[in-house]
Design a binder for these strands. Structure first.
Lengths: 203, 203, 203, 203
DNA sequence: AATGAATGAGCGTTCATTCAT
DNA sequence: TATGAATGAACGCTCATTCAT
């Protein structure tokens, strides 16, 4: 489960767990602020209030923290999606999609800058790419499950592919809308996105 | 317009233009193969058959070549879109969208690996981000133009936003489908994407 | 006499002595396998089944274990020489030299890889050098004693120097023959060495 | 021929050759003074009056300079041996051996401290070991050649092995006599060594 | 006495960039 | 104008050693 099983310390005592946590927090902050490539391990250690060596006691290398952080966040994402999509019956189609969008948005609300960094890294690092794919796949399956519960309302038949397309559309719109200084209103954007998805899915 | 006006040479003679071109070709090849961060200027110069110093005669720094290459590609992209969308009348809605998708796809067909690198860089470098946004905006306006020509068929009213959403969806689906080893069939993916866009746009 | 009197624990209880022994065994194994510089204290401690801190309770630093191990081995060496050279009367000259060679060889038979490491360290560390010299001197005196017992047979007069030369020749031939992949047969080598020494020593 | 063909600069211009030479000189000085492990590349560069980067432009890594220096010295060694053993006829056996010893000693006279470092490294580094073996083998063949020219005087038949044994004896005696603070007189040592070899070789 | 988490100086190495020739 | 040697700050990482528990 743990992505780093090299020679790294696996903390069991309270102190060790705290230290590992402090390093991850500091790393996430710095990666978010300055990006992965412009953050160095000495900085992370200093920001975490530990020595450089301690960093390497808990993580094989710089990328390992990144993956560990991302891994941690992804658990929350899946949880959010599962939890946030409770009872959808008795609602309109647009409401249903809006609920989905909302759940998907939560992750970015929580750590938008780190997500931006993930987007950068997934195109240049195979490990980040693999993790991203796994997470994407997890989310997709969750979406498929949600769709299956309302099968009779749907016009799309190939749920696997539909879920993939929906997820991609959401991801990019969310990213690009956050980042850009486009003058296009965020609210209008999300409305159009929800509209598109709803028309696509439902009869 | 030129992003590099530092004290770089602006070649007017044939030889200088050729040299600049050779550097850009070599850089593009290497960026595509190994990524921006893992390519160094010495390598680019060698691959281009010039001295390290000459590189800096034509480009302010490593990022400048990247931007110059991207700039150059974006011209082709816009051209493709304009050219490829000629006469759409007398076709079905799905055909129209398929034609749009095809034009959009062309850019990735031409330089998929460089595009991947752009995707990585646009999230971590403000200049690349700005250029990407400008290009995205250019494409979007082009799409708006295309949409306006078939206004009476459309159900969407807010063409600016609709074009944005469409473009985002296409971009991400194309990227993710190229990269991932997901078992979802590329054809099914594009079909669903076209279907989604068509349902979104047309009455 | 003990090379480490810093503030290291000097075990008197059985358990402490055992621990010290376990550390020395583990260190010797690792030094032999990977060399002194490529073995680190953490590894030694783990291999010995103790905590890193405990290592420093018994030894001042990494070099101290090395010296302690070497010290220990040297006792055996001297013992071997004394024991192995019992009664030489009534034998031929070559037999006598062969017996000496055999005794000298024993040490290398026992721990050839550690000896190799000693050879490396004695040229780069003054303490190891000093210990090596002391051991060498001890062996030499022992050889002088052996020679003195057969004085009337000898042609060499300056036994001190002769013993030194003999010892050097043996050491290097043994080392180089062990290490190299020279196609020169080990047996022929030892035969020639014995022949040389015999001609040198005896009338 | 050159042991480093990695990505290192191969200087053709006068300046480059000078720089490479300065680095080798500085490295040899420092290796001799402080030993290989206690010398770092920054120091070498500083002592050579160049930047750290220049070091790595000419040598793959720290070990590469070491090997390059050793390589260079070995050429001189062989040359010395060939040149120094001119006409041996009409001399006594001991004179002949003394001449050989003298030629062999020259190398150590020239760079005794570097030779000491070679002795250390050849036991711990495979590449140095290999180079040492090659040089040793070269010297040995040279000695065989010298011996063959005086075949009728010799009692030894197996010249290959005899040369090996002689060389080993010389090497170790020279090393150990240089290093140690043994009270044994250097002159007596060399005399005994020559005596031993002469008795071994000649009828 | 024993643990193992923490330390941090120090190392080898890279590479974008400059500049003498 | 073109060259490629030279620069040196900066980085990722190791490991002998210490010390709070």
């Amino acid at each position: 489960m743990e992505p780093d099983q090299h020679k790294t310390r696996k903390p069991v005592q309270k102190r060790g767990i705290e230290t590992k946590g402090k390093i991850m927090d500091a790393a996430m902050r710095l990666f978010s602020e300055k990006g992965f490539h412009k953050t160095n391990t000495k900085e992370i250690a200093r920001a975490a209030g530990v020595a450089t060596g301690s960093f390497y006691a808990y993580f094989k290398d710089k990328k390992s923290v990144f993956l560990a952080i991302y891994q941690g966040i992804s658990h929350k994402q899946l949880g959010d999606l599962e939890g946030g999509m409770g009872d959808l019956d008795g609602q309109g189609d647009t409401d249903r999609v809006a609920a989905l969008l909302g759940a998907l948005l939560k992750e970015h609300e929580f750590s938008p800058d780190f997500q931006r960094e993930v987007s950068a890294m997934r195109y240049s690092d195979p490990d980040v790419e693999a993790l991203h794919n796994a997470i994407h796949e997890g989310l997709r399956k969750e979406v498929v499950l949600i769709l299956e519960r309302q099968k009779e309302r749907l016009r799309v038949k190939d749920l696997d592919t539909a879920a993939f397309v929906i997820l991609c559309a959401c991801e990019e719109v969310i990213h690009t809308s956050r980042i850009t200084t486009h003058r296009i209103d965020r609210e209008r954007l999300l409305f159009n996105l929800a509209d598109m998805i709803a028309r696509f899915l439902y009869k």
